[in-house]
Design a binder for these strands. Structure first.
Lengths: 189, 189
DNA sequence: CCGGTTGCTGAGCAACGCTCAACAAGCTAC
DNA sequence: GTAGCTTGTTGAGCGTTGCTCAGCAACCGG
């Protein structure tokens, strides 16, 4: 609310608007956040938002991409580590991510799967990249079948970790071991 | 367009409106179909739709529930069959369902996962019922852990069958056998 | 001080969800 | 048949929201 009506650089404003979108993500499905609300929070007019993002969709896909990049950056393994540790580390960090940002992550996944194809595509890209990283770390060939299997395993993981975070029916290490075991069984063919 | 302006019974109208929603489902995400469009197709005024469904959300949750019930009815096994056949039969019919209604099913699942909590709940209910049926057929106890695992397995199945229908990387029987094997491994603990 | 670039605004349009008062089609009763 | 009731149906209109456009205002180089 302070510094209202201040003139900002284009990059600053864009970043600020995306940031506001990220803060609103846990509260509201991406596609449902209104231009009015975002503009009000930024202390600017509706029109200005359309100066930076030609359409509402363009805006919230940018927000979605930012959220996806945040998660991806958090999950990516250190390139030096041994292969096995890389995958387990990613799994561990993913569980931690869901634990920490439960609501926003749930909102993110929901918005990502549903409704808008553009948003769905952003998340599909993210999953693809995660699968590539995992296959590389496991030193497995990247054929169509294996890719499909690992993607489906990721859907399995998302669902299980989500419900586990809601009501843990097993210990955290057990969860991670189970996920790891299913992944190994699926890829060892 | 024929029979326009005809007076219908309340039940007829409701059924017609839901039917129109079902026909529009493959084309449009549930929440995005407009009252105008539906009313236009039904040959009635916008106001009449609000006479049957107090709010737009009430309308498209009704449409979603109708879609879910259609699928559920198609998947439920004949009660007389042997246990093993029941589960495999459901799997087989599920794959067939996705093959037949690829686009509408995709649209349905997307709408179900994303955006509106009410719609998500309808589909969550459907999955719960499917899991109950599966656990009963497998003659397994219905504890929290197993339920979570089977639900997650269903997410796995949805994803894999979806991508398989898009680009089959294995034969249909192989797909079903794989899914069945993963389910058995997960529940045999 | 002046002109150009650019961040920024306000008024306003179109589409959409939703409300409300009233009309009219079909039924029963006389 | 017509009076009267029920109920399916409509049109006008309001508030919100996505989006446009013409122009203001702040900074900057000359």
């Amino acid at each position: 609310m302070t510094a209202s009506r201040s003139r900002r650089s284009a990059d600053d404003r864009r970043a600020q608007l995306v940031q506001i979108g990220l803060e609103l993500l846990p509260t509201t499905p991406v596609q449902e956040l209104t231009i009015d609300e975002v503009a009000r929070r930024a202390g600017i007019s509706r029109s200005l938002l359309f100066h930076y993002f030609a359409t509402k969709r363009e805006y919230y896909t940018a927000v979605t991409r930012a959220a996806a990049d945040l998660m991806l950056e958090h999950l990516l393994p250190e390139p030096g580590a041994p292969a096995d540790e890389q995958v387990t580390g990613m799994l561990d960090r993913y569980v931690g991510w869901v634990e920490t940002f439960r609501e926003s992550h749930l909102a993110f996944v929901r918005g990502a799967g549903g409704g808008d194809p553009w948003v769905a595509e952003v998340y599909a890209d993210t999953r693809q990249r995660l699968v590539e990283v995992a296959l590389t770390a496991l030193d497995l060939p990247d054929d169509a079948l294996r890719r499909q299997l690992v993607l489906a395993w990721f859907a399995f993981t998302e669902d299980l970790v989500g419900s586990w975070a809601d009501a843990p029916a097993m210990s955290r290490p057990e969860l991670i071991a189970l996920l790891r075991e299913v992944l190994d069984r699926l890829t060892a063919r």
